[in-house]
């Protein structure tokens, strides 16, 4: 067939490159998961199956504390970011054209472009100044930093969803006697749910994952799971870390699957 001759699959070495790429991506993860079930303390010698390291991780009070802190932080930051991102998306797609719209777009997405280390150092200096002035050292700084970082990730799917929504639907609602608030509640918001859920999940995962910004902004005793793990790895590496990482992986997979199911069933 004519179209087959243009297929990328026919380029020599395609199969080898594909296998190599997938191996590089997933082999280390497979090994990490595998050795989380190792009975002995080694990362390279298999000594039999055991759930010992999972037990150790669950009994480690510090691990529990930092996990709960991480989840709480991700949920809080992603929630605030999703609300703000929804408002931003509505403003930029439904408010009509206004001067400086392109600049606003760029500014909302800017955290995606700026190297994290720059944001981290900027926040460090900024937060330090506020700490000195107010004496407040609570979780507020981390929530603020994570929220700011999550906004563009939440904004993108919400805006994409809004742009595919026929604006005539809102006109039709208005024509059928809905006030602007009613039109939003009955038409725009329900149709926006897949975008909002996707935005929240992306934000949640991003927050859960962030090391650099957390490292720079956190006060004493505010370790999140990633910064705690980084700290532990500087000493001895036991398969307990593998077990924690595996649980982390399972959580991400769960979220990604939920995200896929939500967008597939509600997206119609």
């Amino acid at each position: 067939m004519a179209e087959k001759s243009y297929s990328v699959r026919r380029i020599p070495g395609f199969g080898a490159v594909a296998v190599f790429t997938f191996a590089m991506l997933y082999l280390p993860i497979v090994i990490l998961v595998l050795f989380s079930f190792n009975a002995g303390p080694s990362q390279s010698v298999w000594e039999g199956f055991s759930l010992h390291w999972y037990e150790a991780a669950f009994q480690n009070r510090q691990v529990r504390d930092v996990s709960i802190r991480s989840l709480w932080l991700a949920a809080t930051a992603a929630s605030i970011a999703t609300v703000l991102a929804t408002l931003a998306a509505l403003g930029t797609t439904r408010g009509g054209r206004f001067p400086g719209q392109t600049i606003i777009y760029a500014l909302i997405n800017q955290p995606l472009m700026v190297p994290e280390i720059v944001t981290g150092i900027a926040l460090l200096i900024f937060v330090a100044a506020i700490k000195v002035q107010t004496g407040y050292t609570g979780m507020g700084y981390l929530v603020m930093a994570h929220t700011a970082f999550c906004i563009p990730f939440a904004y993108l799917p919400i805006r994409a969803r809004l742009e595919t929504l026929d604006a005539a639907l809102e006109s039709a609602a208005a024509d059928l006697y809905a006030s602007p608030v009613q039109a939003f509640v009955h038409i725009t918001l329900p149709l926006l749910v897949p975008g909002i859920v996707a935005g929240f999940m992306l934000g949640f995962v991003i927050s859960l994952d962030t090391v650099v910004i957390t490292e720079f902004v956190k006060s004493a005793g505010q370790d999140t799971l990633p910064t705690y793990m980084l700290g532990q790895l500087r000493r001895t590496v036991t398969p307990e870390m593998n077990a924690i990482a595996t649980l982390f992986l399972a959580l991400s997979l769960l979220i990604v699957t939920a995200f896929f199911l939500v967008t597939r069933t509600r997206g119609r």
Binding site: A172, A174, D175, L191
Partner: peptide, 20 residues
Amino acid sequence: LGPNRRPVNTVFQSYALFPH
């Protein structure tokens, strides 16, 4: 007066039926 306060209704070219 906005469209929601007029005694008229519209059949849109794209129909604009609420998909949900």
